[in-house]
């Protein structure tokens, strides 16, 4: 396990894994969205607006999954003090925020025809908006702490504490009456017909690959930054 956390070995793997993930992710996403938009049938009540599901749901899952990854990386950083974990957490924040924003925007566009409103302050929508604000706060805090040279521990603690919002998002539709419907996919099975479920699964895989590729690319960029800074500092000392 610690072997993979070695930055040199990580960079060797990431060098070929980054483009591989991005290319596979773009291909799967393009294929599944074309399938969802043109080949999948219209829904019995919602008609063609159901096609928003193929963007909305993968974005929602990745928005939540991104913060879960930040929380796990923050835990590893706090307990094992591994620098690569801190870099992974910081690299996940921006793509996570982007997917949370896509989820909110596509959900709003879907809400207008399906519910008759762009936005309501129910438990699900509000907790998802809170997630986007947590991401923005995390990005600002991480940048500020890097610039000030302050301890990165406060960033990791924020990443860990913010994770309480993830189960709240999930259970919001079960604990409280909300306009948003309960989950269609549970451990008990699927309330979604295979015509929608299969393209949704492929889209989720594609979105996840893109997410992974972006995180790896950002991690490499942060590592390169750290390296360049260390080199500059060495040169300054030699002069």
């Amino acid at each position: 396990m610690h072997g993979f956390a070695n930055p040199a070995r990580f960079l060797r793997i990431a060098r070929w894994l980054t483009p591989a993930l991005l290319v596979a992710g773009l291909a799967l996403t393009a294929g599944s969205l074309a399938w969802g938009l043109f080949a999948a049938p219209a829904e019995r009540l919602q008609g063609d607006t159901v096609r928003i599901v193929f963007i909305h749901v993968p974005s929602a899952w990745l928005g939540m999954g991104g913060w879960t990854a930040i929380a796990v990386a923050s835990l590893v950083e706090l307990v094992w003090r591994h620098p690569l974990a801190a870099i992974a957490a910081r690299a996940t924040a921006v793509p996570g925020a982007v997917f949370a924003a896509i989820c909110l925007a596509s959900g709003s566009i879907w809400g207008r025809p399906a519910w008759g409103t762009w936005w309501v302050w129910d438990g699900r929508l509000t907790s998802m908006l809170v997630l986007l604000f947590l991401y923005l706060g995390y990005i600002a805090l991480a940048q500020a702490s890097d610039r000030e040279g302050a301890s990165s521990r406060i960033v990791a603690i924020f990443g860990l504490v913010g994770a309480v919002n993830i189960p709240i998002i999930h259970f919001s539709v079960l604990w409280w009456n909300s306009l948003h419907q309960p989950p269609s996919l549970t451990t008990g099975g699927s309330a979604m017909a295979a015509e929608f479920l299969i393209p949704l699964a492929v889209a989720t895989l594609g979105f996840s690959f893109i997410f992974g590729g972006v995180v790896l690319a950002r991690m490499r960029a942060i590592l390169a930054d750290v390296q360049a800074e260390a080199r500059l500092r060495r040169r300054a000392l030699e002069d």
């Binding site: 019995r44 009540l45 519910w115 309330a191 979604m192 017909a193 929608f196 479920l197």
Partner: peptide, 28 residues
């Protein structure tokens, strides 16, 4: 405001009988 449920079903399934629908959903 309309509140829809968690079931997603294609239009063609509407003409099926209740048993056929259950079967179609069970397959997924």
């Amino acid at each position: 405001l309309a509140k829809h449920d968690e079931n997603y079903m294609p239009r063609e399934l509407e003409d099926m009988s209740a048993a056929q629908k259950r079967e179609a959903v069970a397959e997924t």
